Amino acid sequence: MKHLKTYASVLTLAVASIGSAAQATDLIYGSYLSPEHGNNKFGMERFMEEAKAVSEGSLSFQFIPGGALVGAKTTLEGIRDGIVDGGIVVSLYHASDLPYNSVITNLTAFGGDAAVVAGATNETTLLNCPQCMEEWANWNVKHLGAYSTSMYKLLCAKEVTSIEDIQGWRIRAAGATGRWVNHLGATPVNIPVTDTYEALQRGQVECTVGSLSWLKTFSLGDVAKYVYDLPSGAYFGGSIANINTNRWESLSDIEKKAIIAAAPKAVSGATVMGYIGDDVEYAETGAAADGITINTPSEEEMAMVDEYRKTEADLVIKMAQDAGIEGAEEIVNAFLANLEKWEGIIAEIGHDPAKYEEALQREIYSKLDM
């Protein structure tokens, strides 16, 4: 433990103190992602800076990225046990531990505009799904916000010009995206995204399902030179704004209000500035510089995507009901209604981070109780 503390002191990203350090409540947040990943750079860091500012220096943070304290599959337990006070929880690695939240995560086929999906996900989870919040509480986590990735594509070590090319291939796909990969005629391989580079490099998989920006943020552009621009869902439901419940209960009302006020910064930063912004930037400049070839699906293949999506809502409901999850249909219907609502909101405000944060505050966070 001593060497971890030493390493943490080197990696600590301390948000500047206001007032006496002795009076500040110091919180430790961990991330399995590199410091430059959008979830960290735009999401976690903006969240901590905002909470610090709103609390007028009563809160301070140590941020320890790169998996030094918690990994992709251990952050949930790490928050529960107080190893960290908060961090990025990838809920799809905990489907059996978070079954109600997984009902929403399993709707991956409805991934699209990440700002729309993140808005719908957070409104559903925080306001329409008390069972979801109870699950987080059972893990000693006060959940306050999830992000959405941008639309997934196929990022491959070999060129793909049609779905016929990938028949029998091994494709890295976690959670519900595995169903999609099976539907395409390939074999899903469930490994953490942080292990994908090595898997592609060694030929353990031919492709991964993922966001375009992963070619930069996970350096996959070194080993995956081909992109097949086939819409392949998205991941949403990962907790990026959260805090250990015991720590939450120890905070003053001012500090709690500051944490809630900062949550939209985490959601907007990771989703809009991170995934959407990074995808646009990489498409405009990075792909050509890295020698990436991007191929476009046929109209018939795009129509197949639409047909697949039509069956997914009913399938997710049935899977949940078969697993004994009561109220699954209500959760799915709430998500789909919120998806339509947020499509209208984003049509008006676009992807302006400040306007998006205002919408999140107005539609969701102003309605939360401490």
Results as ranks from 00 to 15, higher is better:
D195W: 14
Y100I: 03
T125V: 11
L107W: 14
L339E: 04
G233D: 11
V54G: 04
A109H: 02
K2T: 15
M48V: 03
I325V: 07
A16I: 05
A288I: 04
D97C: 01
S20E: 15
V89Q: 00
W248S: 03
T105C: 08
S91I: 13
P264V: 07
S250F: 14
P99F: 07
G112Q: 04
D85N: 11
D195K: 14
G30L: 01
S298V: 05
L144Q: 06
Q62P: 00
V103L: 09
K158S: 15
M319V: 03
G112N: 03
L339G: 03
S239W: 09
T75Q: 11
E206G: 14
A266H: 03
K5N: 13
N190E: 15
G119C: 08
Q167C: 07
E164H: 11
Y197H: 15
E329I: 09
Y228F: 15
A22E: 14
L69C: 06
N333T: 08
G111R: 01
K52M: 02
K41T: 00
T293A: 07
A109L: 04
D306A: 12
A21T: 09
T245N: 11
E123G: 07
N40G: 01
M302P: 02
D278I: 02
I325R: 01
D279C: 00
I191G: 04
H94S: 03
A21F: 05
E249P: 07
Y32V: 12
N101G: 10
S102V: 11
V70R: 01
L212G: 11
G203V: 12
L215E: 10
D253S: 10
E249G: 12
E284C: 00
Y197T: 05
S211Y: 14
Y7P: 00
I349V: 05
S298E: 07
S96N: 15
R247S: 08
K265G: 00
Y308L: 06
T121A: 10
I276S: 00
L339Y: 06
Q23D: 13
F236Y: 15
V117F: 07
G145K: 07
G111F: 02
A174I: 14
G327D: 05
S17D: 14
V305Q: 02
W180C: 09
A51P: 02
T187D: 14
A146K: 09
G119I: 07
E56R: 09
S162A: 09
A95Q: 12
I104S: 07
W248F: 14
W342H: 00
L368D: 06
H3Y: 15
E198M: 12
A337Y: 00
L360S: 04
Q167H: 12
K216T: 11
Q62G: 09
F236K: 11
N122P: 04
A270F: 06
G233L: 12
Q321C: 08
R179S: 13
D352Y: 03
P35A: 01
L98G: 05
C156W: 08
R309K: 11
N40V: 13
G291A: 05
E159H: 11
L212N: 13
S252A: 07
D306S: 12
T121R: 01
E348C: 04
I292K: 02
E363A: 03
L230R: 11
A359Q: 03
G78W: 13
K367G: 02
S150T: 10
S31K: 06
I163N: 13
R202H: 13
N190S: 09
D229T: 10
I364S: 08
G237V: 08
S148G: 05
T194S: 12
G344L: 00
K341D: 03
